[in-house]
Simulated scan of single mutants.
Amino acid sequence: MKIETIAIHAGNHTDPSTRAVVQPITLSTTFERGEDGEFPGGFSYTRAANPNRKSLENVMAQLEGGVDACAFSSGNAAGAAVFQSLKPGSHIVAPDDMYHGLKNLINSVYKDILTADYLDLSDLKAVESAIKPDTKLIWIETPSNPLLKVTDIAGICKIAHERGIIVCCDNTFATPVFQQPLTLGADLVMHATTKYLGGHSDVLGGVLITKNNDGFWERIRSVQTLSGAVPAPFDCYMAVRGIKTLPYRMRGHSANAGKIARYLESHPRVEAVFYPGLENHPLHHIAKTQMSDFGGMLSFTIRGSSDETREISNKLKLFTRATSLGGVESLIEHRASVEGPDTKTPKNLLRISVGLEYIDDLIADLEQALK
């Protein structure tokens, strides 16, 4: 099946008792045993498994071309399950502009358990040099947040697998519609389902998808079940509902983002635009080989101070100043102020999650704010 068909059908089944076309929400926390003590319906307790979570995991495994998936209560919970599944003392190689929530998680919660080096993953020689005897994981984020850096997934996987190192790719920005890391060699894929998968800024969640049902995946599944950081049935239902329109929404996001990137690129007040679909992006040639389109996220820097940058975002009418991304509405954020004093994000940078509004309206709004 093609991705549009998978998105609609793999997360849904007709209810056998009522013949409802849309799968109902199963709120029960516990399930009846059979007379033999077993569970004829396949479910025992909702922390371990739930029909709605099973549907979300099924559709995500199929969309990414994996063999299994684990859904979590947030993207950070999904990342944490990977880190928890590593043995104490393991070393991680991660991007220097890794999503600050996950980076802070490693540096605070796991600071006495794991070690990490953060570097520019576009430099494959630097990645090779950073690998240590105890390196067990390379974490990829491509395109990255917020600088839209591109990582050569196949290149990183070759380096890692020659040394027996696991590769996990955060595919949140690209989604499985535009990029499929498992086919490029990654072992695991992570998404914040909060973003494009849910697609409407109204549900929190995360998911991991695996290429192999191996021992490391069994540890991740155990972390999911025993730690209990699982999404509620309603959250799973909402994520599955959003995924049904994902392929068509992503085409609209990407088309709008490409036009805005080119508009900003030519504006005299704009210093630089970070978008992998632009030919002057330093790794545009890599993006073209591993992405079918370039997504709805972009960042740009202003010729001016931090205050002048924030003033531009304050003048916008259709772009809401807010954290997060991937909804149908356009959002803008001054990332440096969100990430704190240790951020390496330029203070004159604004990140845009380009929504599905009419493109001429969005460009007119940017035009009046940039005057």
Rank of each mutant, 00 (worst) to 15 (best):
V21K: 13
N50Y: 01
G11A: 05
T26K: 07
A7M: 01
G41T: 15
S17D: 15
F43C: 07
T29C: 04
G11D: 07
E35L: 14
P16L: 12
T30V: 09
I8M: 04
P40A: 13
R33S: 14
T46Y: 02
T26E: 06
K2M: 02
V22H: 09
R33I: 07
S44T: 13
T46N: 02
R19S: 15
K2V: 02
V21P: 04
I25D: 04
G42Y: 09
K2C: 02
V22G: 03
I25P: 06
F39G: 12
P24I: 03
T18K: 08
F31R: 12
I25Y: 06
H13G: 06
R47C: 00
L27H: 11
P24G: 06
P16H: 11
R33P: 09
T14P: 03
T18L: 10
T30P: 00
G41R: 09
V22E: 07
S44Q: 07
R47S: 01
H9F: 11
A7L: 00
T30H: 06
K2A: 01
N12M: 05
V21R: 12
R19T: 15
A49W: 02
I6Q: 01
T26Q: 07
R19H: 15
G11V: 06
T14F: 10
V22N: 06
A48Q: 00
A49E: 02
R33Q: 15
P40E: 07
Y45E: 07
A10W: 05
T29D: 06
R33E: 12
A7T: 05
T26S: 06
R47M: 02
A20C: 08
S28G: 10
S17N: 14
A48V: 02
F39S: 13
V21G: 06
T30L: 03
R47I: 04
T46G: 00
G42Q: 08
N12T: 09
R19L: 15
T5E: 12
S44Y: 09
F39T: 14
I3M: 02
H9Q: 09
E35M: 11
A10M: 05
D15Q: 08
I6A: 03
N50P: 02
V22Q: 09
P40L: 10
G11R: 01
R19N: 15
G11L: 03
